[in-house]
Amino acid sequence: STGEEYIAVGDFTAQQVGDLTFKKGEILLVIEKKPDGWWIAKDAKGNEGLVPRTYLEPYS
């Protein structure tokens, strides 16, 4: 699937089932941008889950 690459600007630990845990500096592939501010993203290992958009910045 296609998506946009974003870099994590902080650590995030999953708070509920379906969230994706990530560390600062990780590159995430954003698959869907939901209007509530929680985006669906995939990490380098292929894990998929919800992430808070405030922790992400476009990666170029």
Rank of each mutant, 00 (worst) to 15 (best):
S1T: 11
T2F: 09
T2D: 01
G3L: 14
G3T: 14
G3D: 08
G3W: 13
E4H: 01
E4K: 12
E4G: 10
E4Q: 07
E5H: 02
E5D: 05
Y6E: 01
Y6A: 04
Y6L: 04
I7W: 03
A8P: 01
A8R: 00
V9N: 05
D11T: 08
D11W: 02
T13E: 06
T13D: 06
A14W: 03
A14R: 09
A14C: 02
Q15S: 13
Q15R: 13
Q16W: 02
Q16G: 12
V17C: 08
G18N: 05
G18V: 09
G18I: 10
G18M: 05
D19C: 15
D19A: 15
L20C: 05
L20P: 03
T21R: 12
T21L: 05
T21K: 10
F22L: 11
K24D: 11
K24E: 12
G25R: 06
G25S: 07
I27G: 06
I27R: 11
I27V: 06
I27F: 13
L28H: 01
L29E: 13
V30W: 00
V30A: 09
I31Q: 09
E32H: 08
E32R: 07
K33H: 09
K33T: 07
K34T: 08
K34H: 03
K34M: 11
K34S: 03
K34A: 04
K34D: 06
P35M: 08
D36V: 10
D36G: 11
D36E: 06
G37W: 01
W38S: 15
W39F: 13
W39D: 07
W39Q: 01
I40R: 11
A41H: 00
A41V: 12
K42R: 09
K42Q: 12
K42S: 13
K42T: 10
D43P: 02
A44V: 08
A44M: 05
K45R: 08
K45Q: 09
K45N: 08
K45P: 06
N47G: 09
N47D: 13
E48L: 09
G49Y: 01
L50G: 14
L50R: 15
V51Q: 00
P52C: 14
R53T: 11
T54K: 14
L56R: 00
E57T: 02
E57V: 01
P58K: 06
P58R: 09
P58A: 14
Y59F: 06
Y59S: 14
S60P: 10
S60M: 15
S60Y: 14
S60Q: 11
